[in-house]
Lab assay of single mutants.
Amino acid sequence: MTEYKLVVVGAGGVGKSALTIQLIQNHFVDEYDPTIEDSYRKQVVIDGETCLLDILDTAGQEEYSAMRDQYMRTGEGFLCVFAINNTKSFEDIHHYREQIKRVKDSEDVPMVLVGNKCDLPSRTVDTKQAQDLARSYGIPFIETSAKTRQGVDDAFYTLVREIRKHKEKMSKDGKKKKKKSKTKCVIM
């Protein structure tokens, strides 16, 4: 069974824990209790493949930012979460993405942009803004509501699919490099 290491990042209060708990335990946590770091595991079937999701729910508070490099190193894919009623959390996505790329030393890291709290009427981040940002990053965008469960499975499952595509691409690139290195030079 394939294991996928997913990391949920975003500013404090955007609903990272609520999304994760909704996926794992099928219930909505409405009281806000700032996370330092929590880890969850769940076995699911995605596109006919049974897999184990190892999900790291991270601290959004700035005082825990020193811990970010460590979990970013171990993560295979990242859910970059903002709240649709919090423009600052949307603007912060850029910083999370840049930090992930720096730590992973790669421009090509599996990510999904997630606009959470889409059940709320007080939207300050337009869907088109988020779609445009995701398009500019070359990553999928999904709106979710941890409260109603809308888009929750889709967000995590899409990230797994992005990781699969990335692994497939990397193995193809690896095979191309191996083929090239088999060419021999004969000096007579």
Results as ranks from 00 to 15, higher is better:
Ala130Gln: 13
Val29Lys: 05
Ser17Asp: 00
Ile36Glu: 00
Gly12Phe: 07
Asp30Lys: 15
Asn116Phe: 00
Phe28Val: 02
Asp105Gly: 13
Lys117Trp: 14
His166Gln: 11
Asn85Ser: 06
Lys104Cys: 15
Asp57Ser: 00
Ser17His: 00
Val103Trp: 15
Phe82Tyr: 08
Gln129Cys: 14
Arg123Asn: 14
Gly60Met: 00
Gly115Ser: 09
Thr127Met: 07
Met67Phe: 04
Val9Cys: 11
Glu3Asn: 15
Asp153Gln: 09
Ile187Arg: 08
Lys104Phe: 15
Met72Cys: 07
Ser181Gln: 15
Leu52Thr: 15
Leu19Thr: 11
Thr158Gln: 04
Asp126Gln: 09
Phe82Trp: 09
Thr58His: 00
Val186Glu: 15
Cys118Leu: 11
Arg164Trp: 05
Glu37Pro: 02
Gly174Tyr: 02
Gly60His: 01
Lys101Gly: 10
His27Asn: 09
Gln70Asp: 04
Ser39Pro: 00
Glu107Cys: 14
Cys118Ile: 10
Arg164Thr: 15
Thr183His: 04
Arg135Gly: 12
Lys172Tyr: 07
Lys182Pro: 13
Asp54Cys: 04
Thr183Ala: 12
Asp132Lys: 07
Ser122Ile: 06
Leu133Pro: 14
Lys101Ile: 06
Arg123Gly: 12
Glu76Ala: 07
Val152Ser: 10
Gln61Lys: 13
Phe141Trp: 05
Gln131Ile: 05
Leu6Gly: 04
Asp154Leu: 06
Lys175Phe: 11
Thr158His: 13
Lys147Arg: 09
Leu113His: 04
Phe28Met: 03
Arg135Ile: 13
Ala83His: 10
Met111Gln: 03
Arg97Glu: 11
Asp154Ala: 06
Lys175Ser: 05
Gly138Asp: 03
Gln43Pro: 10
Ala18Glu: 00
Leu56Asn: 01
His166Ser: 07
Glu98Val: 03
Arg135Tyr: 15
Phe82Lys: 01
Arg135Ser: 12
Arg161Phe: 04
Val8Asn: 02
Leu52Met: 14
Asp30Met: 13
Glu37Ile: 01
Asp57Arg: 00
Leu159Glu: 03
Gly77Leu: 09
Leu52Gln: 14
Cys51Ile: 12
Val114Ala: 04
Asp33Pro: 00
Lys101Asn: 08
Ile55Tyr: 01
Tyr71Ile: 03
Thr2Ala: 13
Ala146Ile: 01
Leu79Met: 05
Asp57Leu: 00
Gln43Arg: 14
Asp119Ile: 07
Ile100Ser: 09
Tyr32Gly: 00
Asp108Ile: 06
Ala130Phe: 13
Gly10Glu: 02
Arg123Asp: 12
Ala66Leu: 09
Gln25His: 03
Ser17Glu: 01
Val14Gln: 13
Ala59Arg: 00
Thr50Val: 13
Ser89Val: 04
Gln22Glu: 06
Arg41Ile: 03
Lys117Leu: 14
Lys167Thr: 11
